[in-house]
Every structure is written in structure tokens, then in C-alpha cells.
Design a protein around this nucleic acid. Structure first.
Lengths: 345, 345
DNA sequence: CTTGGCACTCATATGGAACGAGTGCCAAGC
DNA sequence: GCTTGGCACTCGTTCCATATGAGTGCCAAG
């Protein structure tokens, strides 16, 4: 266990290092912070911190920089979360207030978060399992293609094309089928609707013409897929340009990070594994992200509620980032998004 | 005017430099290419090329590298476009063949192009002005919100929410309005449909209840917007990770490039200004992109037809890129996309 | 436990010398 | 008139040796 003052020294090292990007020495600490002790005393504390692997030196006789473990302890012992400035709050309000549909809300949210933190911002789309199905449409796009359009509460639209090879699709046929599906699905939430459609699928023989059964099945399969497609597995990203900030933070790992952003799958897994032990904001620091090749990266994320399910949003940046400020910002944006989505439905 | 052999020397310099990323000297040229002349002769040619500002030296006595102007002449005098290998063609076929809706086609196209060229790939969404309107839906999302869904040929769906503050939206009302709009718009192409809706807007007083006119107007405005929204102004991007390839190509300009990719507006303008003088593939090299801050970047683009209108797709990369191969690939992918979209409709 | 002092380490900066790739130019050759 | 071999010259790169200074660890005294 580290002493009270040692912890204060760690905090000083982290914040100085984040600000200057240079190893910080004992003298610099007594100069910039008002500990009531001399540099030699600080040096003793630093020796202890180094023993605990909370800080390290770049070479035998240089100042110290925090290790992953040091950052971790720093984050865990951050006393209070700085509230945002009035200007920042206003910016959030203004930015989100103008948005129209969900797509737009997500895009604005990540852009905002990226701008406020100067990091890469990521947000998971809300899960829609508990959302009500408002409307279902089947539209013939030609003789062999039918477009299925699903309209969910809060204005989300899913579309998908069903191919019905070598068939003669007529408007009347499509219309009748639509009616049946709508009866089974519209009005209930997505999960129940999926069950309804499955039910319909299993009784196809009872109500469809024998020569149409195959076609009907295809359409129902597509609708089922749409209902089961988990929106939660989409993410919005913004601020990739922040990766190339001066400082060469991501020396070798920039390609890995860019790939992760493009892949999305990696980010989703990473987000999924984040543990929120009591706190509303969680962090994953450096080597904790090793399994994803992102050991030079830290992630700060917060849950945001979304009716029944929970989704996440956060930022991704270099190990050396302003954790205090980023945690505050992520939390604030998540709260606004919460409130905003709450109003919506 | 440069002589025949000088031009050949330029080609040698470009291809060697692209391959090695090092200034190429006269000796290296005679070694690697079978000109029937000595190094001294090559040096004379190089002096001429330098006079014409087609090549330059990094310092007084080093090998030469091509200038922007040199790359330009090189591209303009590329004799024949290398055809793709069978494997590459197969990859294209396979990759595009699996796609479902337009969104998916575009995503696959850029991913493919990025992978084949190792550059950032960009594609403009097809313009839909000549596409037929298949279907229009209005769905009440609550008492004060109506979702308008527009279904176009080839399975494109546009949605937008209309807010009708302080009103009591009923299903019956929405249904009636939908019918009217559908009569005016469904079946004709997007441009005519827009005209039809505008017509409807101007005669609102004649058929709507006085106290509903304001609400009807709002809905019609939203539908109009949807019809006029130009899909052509959306782009798909992939392969950003290729920017961080070793070689430090984008030393200082990486942030600019990343921003351009995220902004999209810049890329759209850039694409819009590309001139195709007779060729099916065009290039914009280095300083030619100065106005957009992308003077360290080259762009290779091709038109792809899309019924009436024309859209573009291409790649963006460092000045020092394999123009010959990239031009061939962009052209091939554009052709496949052409064919694919042709089959669709 | 704190503090001043001191020897020690090591990254960085500076400068000079050797090296070598590549050029420009010239006079001779085809 | 174009081509060629030769040669002096330039200049970036590498290597080494030295000087500097920031920062440490340790110790003995307060």
C-alpha cells in the first residue's frame, strides 16, 4: 500500500507528464506543486512508487513516467470528477438539440465527444430489443425481388431485399402477405414480433398455396433476420484525425488503431468487456487492452441507458491522455444522451 | 519537349523510385534497365529532365526523384493499362457478387478497392434522380411525430421524421394523407415525383381542412426534402489504415488527410472537379490538390455510370504511389460496378 | 522521517574526420 | 553531333570522442 503523500506524488507525476510529455523529476515536482518537503524526500517517495511499478524511468537517470499500473491507480483514486464548464454544457445542448433521427443523434454525439476530448470517439447504437414494431412494408421491386421495410419506434428503419428467383411477384400477392406478417408483428416489441413471425413460418402450409410456400418462406426468413439483426452491433466513430496529433503518441501502433476503428468488431468486443464496478464511467488502460493489440491505447467508456438495454459510448486515445477531463466529458455526454433518448420515446 | 529516351528515363526513375523509396541515380538506372547506353549518357538526359522540372534532387549530389510535374507526365504517357490478374478479377467478382442492398454494394466496393490498391478508397453514392419512386409510407410515431419513408427503385430507402408540435395525429388522417402523396409521386422518377409533391403543396387549401393546412404543409415539406436529398453527396470510404504504412509518406499532412476523409465535403468537391479528358480514368497529382490542403496526395478516379447520371470512385494515396497498377485497378472496379448496377435495375 | 551534499549515470549536443554515392563537366572517340 | 570514360567536387551520412547537464541513489547529519 502506498502512503498518502506517495499517492499525491503519483498524481503530480501523472498530471505533469500528461501536460508536458516529458519525464518528470523530483525537482520539477517541488517547483510546480506545493508539497512542504524537499526534493530528496520526493525522491524517496518516488523510489517507493517505482518499487511498486507505478512509475518507471526511460533510462537510468531520468525523470519518471507513469506505468500502465500507475495510470490505473491514478484513475481509481481520482477524487472527484471535475464538472464541465458552462460553455461545454451549452455546446452539448446545442449540438444534440438539433438532431433529427437516430442516425443523426449518434453521428452528432460522437462528433461532439471527439471535439471535446480531442480523442477518437466511439458510440454503440442503442439496442432495440424492447422497441415496438410500428409498421411493416413489403414492396415488389420487380418480378423477382421484394423489399421488406421494418419501421420501429423512435423512427428507426430497417430494410432488406428478398430475392425470389424465377417467380412472378404481383402486387396483390405481396399485399396479402404483408397483411399477414403485419398482423403477427406490428404493435408488439421486436422480440415478441420475432416470435410471431417464427410462429407464422411454422404454419405456412396451413394458409399458403402449395406452389407459393417456398417463396413465402424466403420472405419470412428475411423479415426474421431483420427483427433479429442487433442494432447494438453497430457503432459510430468520429475524430480519427485526432490520432495524428503531434507527439507521436502512436508511434508504431497507429495502423493497429486505424484498423480497429475500421473493423468495428474489435471495438465492439472491447466495449463489451469493459467492467463498470459501481462507477458510471470505466477505463481500460494500456496493456489491459493487449488482447486486441491496443496495448498503447486507453479507453474510457460509460454506459448509457436506453430503456431496457444498455449501450456504451466513450473515447479511445493514447496511454498518455488527460484522464480526469476525459472521464468528466464522457460522463457528461452519456448523461445528455440518456436524457435525450428518454425524451424521444 | 523531351526526347524519346528522356521520357523512358523518366519512366525508369518513377518506377524505381516508387519501388524503392530512394532517390535513383544514373548508375542504378543502367543497372536495372537495359538502355543501350552508359551512365554518363543517362546523366545528360537527367540534366535535361531536371531543366524541365520533371525530376529534382534532394540535395546537390544525390539521385533524382520525380516532381509533381514528372508524375503527371508519367501518368499521361503511360502506354497501356496493365490488365488485372485472373485472381484479382475473381476477387472482385466474388466480393461484389454477394452484396444485398445498395449500402452493402458501396461498402464492399470501397473495401475491395482499398484492399487491392493498398490505398484509401472512396466512392460516391450513385445519383438517384432518374430512379423511380416505388412506394411512400407515412407512419405515426406518436401524437406529434410522423415518419415518412420513401422507397426507391433498386431498394434504396429514405426516411425522415416530421414533427407536428401540439397536434393529435391519428392513423386515419395519416393514411388519407399518404394516399394523396402516393397518388402524386409513386410510379414516376424522383424528379417528377418532387414536382408532383410541390404541385400538391400549392393546392393544399383546396383539399385539406383549414385547421390542418399547417400540419399537412409540414409533412409535404419533409417529403419534398427527401425527394430532393441528393444521395450523390454521400460517399463511402475504406482503408484509412493504409495511410499509416511504413515509409512516413504523409509526414506532416496525415492529420489533413484524415480530416478530409472524415469531412467528406472536401472529397466530394475534389472528386467533382476531376476532369476526364477522353480517358476513363483521371488523376490529380500532388499540388494539383493544393486548394484542398492535399498537396502531398494523389487521387485516381474513374466515372461509373449509373443510368442517367454519373458518379465517381477512386483511391487517394501518397504522391509516391504505383500509378500504373492503381489506375488499372480503379478502372477495373469501376467497370464491374457499372455492370453490377446495370444488372440490378 | 527529512534534508543537504555528493558521486554517478546516461541521454543529448557538438565537432571533426572518414566515407561514399552521385553529380557536372570535359576531352576523346565513334 | 551524340556518346563515353575519367575525374574533381559536393554533401549527406556515419563514427568517434568529448563536454554538458539533468536527474538519480545513497549517506550521514539534523
Amino acid at each position: 500500500m502506498v502512503s498518502e503523500r506517495s499517492l499525491a506524488v503519483l498524481h503530480a507525476i501523472v498530471s505533469d507528464y500528461v501536460a508536458s510529455n516529458e519525464p518528470v523529476g523530483s525537482k520539477a515536482i517541488v517547483d510546480r506543486h506545493s508539497f512542504g518537503v524537499s526534493a530528496a524526500t520526493i525522491r524517496n517517495d518516488m523510489a517507493l512508487l517505482e518499487e511498486d511499478e507505478l512509475i518507471a524511468q526511460t533510462h537510468t537517470s531520468s525523470g519518471r513516467i507513469p506505468t500502465d499500473k500507475g495510470y490505473r491507480l491514478y484513475v481509481d483514486t481520482l477524487a472527484r470528477i471535475r464538472p464541465l464548464t458552462a460553455a461545454q454544457r451549452a455546446a452539448i445542448e446545442r449540438f444534440l438539440g438539433e438532431s433529427t433521427d437516430l442516425e443523426d443523434v449518434m453521428a452528432r454525439t460522437v462528433r461532439l465527444l471527439a471535439q471535446l476530448t480531442n480523442q477518437v470517439a466511439v458510440a454503440q447504437y442503442p439496442s432495440l430489443r424492447r422497441t415496438v414494431v410500428r409498421h411493416i412494408d413489403l414492396v415488389a421491386l420487380g418480378e423477382d425481388r421484394v423489399l421488406s421495410v421494418l419501421i420501429l419506434g423512435s423512427g428507426v428503419v430497417e430494410q432488406q431485399v428478398a430475392w425470389l428467383p424465377a417467380s412472378r411477384v404481383t402486387d396483390a400477392w405481396v399485399h396479402g402477405l404483408r397483411q399477414r406478417i403485419a398482423d403477427a408483428a406490428v404493435g408488439s416489441d421486436v422480440e415478441s414480433a420475432a416470435a410471431g413471425v417464427t410462429e407464422l413460418e411454422s404454419t405456412v402450409e396451413e394458409w399458403a398455396q402449395p406452389d407459393e410456400i417456398e417463396l413465402v418462406r424466403r420472405v419470412l426468413t428475411v423479415v426474421s433476420e431483420q427483427l433479429q439483426a442487433n442494432r447494438n452491433e453497430r457503432i459510430a466513430v468520429a475524430g480519427a484525425a485526432n490520432l495524428s496529433r503531434p507527439g507521436g503518441e502512436f508511434a508504431g501502433s497507429l495502423p493497429v488503431v486505424l484498423e480497429a476503428i475500421e473493423e468495428q468488431v474489435t471495438l465492439l468486443r472491447l466495449f463489451g468487456e469493459l467492467v463498470h464496478d459501481g462507477r458510471d464511467v470505466s477505463a481500460s488502460i494500456g496493456r489491459e487492452n493487449e488482447p486486441y493489440g491496443l496495448s498503447q491505447t486507453s479507453i474510457i467508456a460509460s454506459n448509457y441507458e436506453d430503456g431496457a438495454a444498455i449501450s456504451k459510448l466513450g473515447v479511445l486515445g493514447p496511454l498518455r491522455m488527460d484522464y480526469a477531463s476525459n472521464i468528466a466529458t464522457v460522463r457528461a455526454v452519456a448523461r445528455y444522451l440518456n436524457r435525450f433518448l428518454g425524451e424521444e420515446r
